[in-house]
């Protein structure tokens, strides 16, 4: 679901649209989505920003676009120079999501915990290797954890 080949560090983007395109292409390259999913990611972003705070956005498609998801997959793209996300927000990490089930829940739970902890959030934004990202975003099973 989140694997080393879905983590792309040290990227640069010309803007929000380019960053979302890069997330979509990363999902496409992994065979997780059909190409139509990319348009849905832009549609979702235009209707409601996926910026979630701490320099992180979680681009994903719309409810209708689940039909273009072949396999629930997450990708992580890091933009060290920051991407202007509008409304005064700057994004340094995108977690691109393609989901047709709920297998992504554990990793998004881990992401929430990382972002609630300032030090961990900074480690994610400045990660220099994929191992660091994988360690930070290890799936958490809320149902069975304390």
């Amino acid at each position: 679901m989140l694997t080393a080949d879905g983590i792309h560090l040290g990227r640069a983007a010309t803007g929000r649209d380019d960053a979302i395109d890069q997330c979509g292409r990363a999902l496409l390259d992994l065979g997780a989505v059909e190409v139509d999913y990319l348009a849905a990611m832009h549609e979702r972003e235009a209707s409601l920003s996926t910026f979630i705070g701490e320099g992180v956005a979680i681009p994903h498609g719309t409810d209708q676009s689940r039909q273009f998801v072949k396999r629930t997959t997450l990708v992580v793209l890091q933009f060290p120079d920051g991407v202007d996300w509008g409304s005064g927000n700057t994004v340094k990490v995108c977690v691109g999501i393609a989901a047709n089930g709920s297998e992504q829940v554990g990793i998004l739970s881990a992401l929430a915990h990382v972002l609630m902890d300032g030090d961990k959030a900074e480690r994610l934004r400045s990660a220099a290797d994929t191992r660091t990202v994988l360690d930070l975003l290890q799936s958490i099973d809320e149902e069975n954890s304390q």
Binding site: T50, I52, G61, D63, S65, R66, Q104, V105, L108, A112
Partner: peptide, 20 residues
Amino acid sequence: CDAGMGSSVMVASQLAKRLK
């Protein structure tokens, strides 16, 4: 949330922990 695949999952995971 709109798609039920990203944003709402983030919030649900935080609240699930607090309301457990």
